[in-house]
């Protein structure tokens, strides 16, 4: 097992280095100039002299390898450098924004599993019933509809039929949980719908598989109540494949949050990333991409290790 862990870690580090290089290079390959973006782009009124001043201030007039080297050196010193646009340390932006996105992702994940597991189990138990058909429509729609569309649909229904939409003023959960939940619950629903649908479909199919296993028949023949058969014997075994996709889904939720955060005015890392890409705020984009890469890689590492722990055939392969 130790060898397996070391092998995974050995892959983790070069992947992270590659991610840092890509995060740096992508922004430079894209046409555009942060100095021009800062001077207002198309609406700006500036001259070459203004541009030179801003480029000098940002350091974007230095050779690329110097810029990359400086960034990596600062990273190792724990310095994510300063945002070109917000003019505050990037670490401050990350500290402000990542907890918000994490809360959103975790809420979306929790909500999706709270709905998905019972839905999948009931669909399997009541296979081909009206409930199963309704659940099928619900889950296929969830897989098919883009997340942003679901978000817009939710806003539409809330605004049009309830004359209410989530408050604009973001409140921290620990300071004002009620307002925070009002603001976060609907984006979490929108974000989690795909996961709900996906997990429900997976639960249903694994449940159906398990329900035809010999040990279920044995349990029934022992005279156990159906609820016990399902709850204690079927669900437990059917749930394993569903649990293993949690890591993958959490990573996906961070990606999906980019659009949903903008729609619901949630001050998370997604909106920060979009803003920063548009204004070519290199330090922020690099840091956010690196952080997301770190999270996804970390989750994958954990899942890999869990796989290894759960299935010895993998770690000895």
């Amino acid at each position: 097992m130790t060898g397996y862990i070391l092998q995974r870690l050995a892959l983790f580090i070069p992947t992270l280095i590659l991610a840092s290089f890509l995060a740096f290079a992508i922004m430079r390959i894209l046409p555009g100039d942060p100095a021009i973006a800062m001077l207002g782009g198309a609406e700006g009124s500036f001259t070459q002299e203004d541009l030179d001043v801003v480029r000098e201030k940002l350091g974007t007039n230095r050779p690329l390898h110097i810029q990359y080297g400086t960034w990596i050196r600062d990273l190792f010193q724990g310095n994510l450098s300063e945002s070109y646009f917000f003019r505050v340390p990037v670490s401050q932006l990350m500290t402000d924004r990542f907890p918000v996105s994490t809360q959103l992702a975790v809420m979306a994940l929790l909500l999706s599993y709270v709905v998905a597991v019972p839905l999948g189990v009931l669909s399997a138990v009541k296979q081909d019933s009206w409930f199963d058909h309704a659940a099928k429509i619900f889950t296929i729609a969830g897989v098919a509809l883009p997340t942003f569309w679901v978000g817009i649909l939710i806003l539409f229904v809330l605004g049009n039929y309830f004359n209410w939409v989530p408050p604009l003023d973001y409140a921290n959960f620990w300071e004002n949980p009620l307002i925070n939940l009002q603001q976060m619950i609907f984006p979490a629903v929108a974000l989690g719908y795909f996961n709900t649908a996906f997990a429900a479909r997976l639960t249903r199919s694994t449940m159906l598989e398990v329900m035809h296993e010999d040990y279920i028949r044995t349990a029934r023949s022992k005279g156990l109540k159906e609820a016990v058969v399902i709850g204690r014997h079927a669900v437990k075994n059917a749930f394993l494949p569903v649990v293993t996709i949690v890591g993958f889904q959490l990573g996906r939720l961070f990606g999906g949050a980019v659009v949903i955060e903008a729609i619901f005015v949630v001050p998370g890392v997604g909106t920060l990333l979009v803003d920063s890409v548009l204004i070519r705020d290199y330090p922020v984009v690099q840091a956010v991409i690196l952080m997301i890469a770190l999270i996804v890689l970390g989750l994958n590492l954990v899942v890999d290790l869990l796989y290894g722990w759960l299935n010895p055939r993998i770690r000895y392969a």
């Binding site: 004359n163 209410w164 619901f264």
Partner: peptide, 21 residues
């Protein structure tokens, strides 16, 4: 005076329609 930065056009419209701005 309170200013809200809203970047999504759908959210912008709903904010107006529901008297948030």
């Amino acid at each position: 005076k309170e200013t809200f930065v809203i970047k999504d056009k759908d959210r912008f419209v709903t904010a107006f329609m529901t008297d948030q701005i």
